[in-house]
């Protein structure tokens, strides 16, 4: 398949693919934002042990963690419009991009809710009691004492999620969304230099993943200044 390997194509392809990076990043940003909202909403019933709702949360998380994201994409893209037809809502003109963002948002929401749960449980109950004892309300105790520490704790997990999400978005070309991977398909077909295209694509994904990793590590160090051990571990 394809023509003989020629490295010069890589130089040619990278800028062409980069032209579509913004779509990829747009999907990542939107779906992570959506995921954070959903993740919080899904985590709360389990954190506060709200009867019925915490079961719904658990089922939600199981489904999105336990099924391939490709299948989730298909289910939402093809299934949701059918479902909405039932209530006379026509979504055939909604662009595929919206379904992609929705799927990735729902998917990362499941993972984010688990990260939130773990992080909140990591903040010891005693600090919350101390907050109550100085007269803070439950809301203030959560926002000023629990949340900042939980956010710092969950940052490594969150970093993994964002990078995983970045890579997962490459699947959205299956719905015909023209992001980087989608563009690579057309470039490959047009030039018949598939290996070079995929090599270029990997280099770009790798560069962004590494950049994100650095960024989160920096943020984490800033947020965990109060834990000297974190710095020590990192320097080893």
């Amino acid at each position: 398949m394809g023509r003989r390997f020629d490295i010069t194509f890589v130089y040619d392809f990278i800028p062409k693919l980069l032209g579509f990076l913004q779509i990829t990043l747009f999907i990542v940003a939107c779906s992570m934002l959506l995921g954070m909202v959903i993740g919080t909403a899904v985590a709360l019933p389990r954190l506060f042990r709200i009867p019925v709702l915490q079961r719904v949360s658990r089922i939600y998380v199981s489904f999105f963690r336990g099924t391939p994201i490709l299948i989730q994409l298909f289910l939402i893209y093809f299934g949701l419009p059918e479902l909405l037809k039932g209530i006379h809502l026509d979504v055939t003109r909604v662009p595929a991009l919206a379904f992609v963002i929705l799927t990735y948002g729902l998917n990362s929401g499941a993972f984010i809710s688990e990260a939130i749960r773990a992080a909140v449980s990591a903040v010891d109950r005693g600090q919350v009691e101390a907050a109550y004892a100085v007269g803070m309300s439950g809301f203030h105790a959560f926002r000023r004492i629990v949340l900042p520490q939980a956010a710092a704790v969950s940052l490594p997990a969150f970093s993994n999620l964002v990078i995983g999400n970045l890579k997962d978005t490459s699947l959205s070309f299956t719905l015909g969304v023209m992001e980087m991977t989608g563009k690579s398909q057309t470039l490959g077909l047009a030039t018949q230099h598939f290996i070079e295209v995929y090599l270029s694509l990997s280099l770009i994904y790798l560069a962004i993943s590494l950049a994100l990793e650095r960024l989160f590590a920096l943020a984490e160090r800033r947020m965990r200044l109060h834990e000297p051990d974190v710095g020590v571990l990192r320097n080893q």
């Binding site: 010891d124 600090q127 101390a130 907050a131 520490q149």
Partner: peptide, 13 residues
């Protein structure tokens, strides 16, 4: 009231 705890319970951050 104000309370002083056995395990301090300072706000760690």
């Amino acid at each position: 009231t104000a309370m002083v705890f056995q395990n301090y319970h300072l706000f760690k951050h």
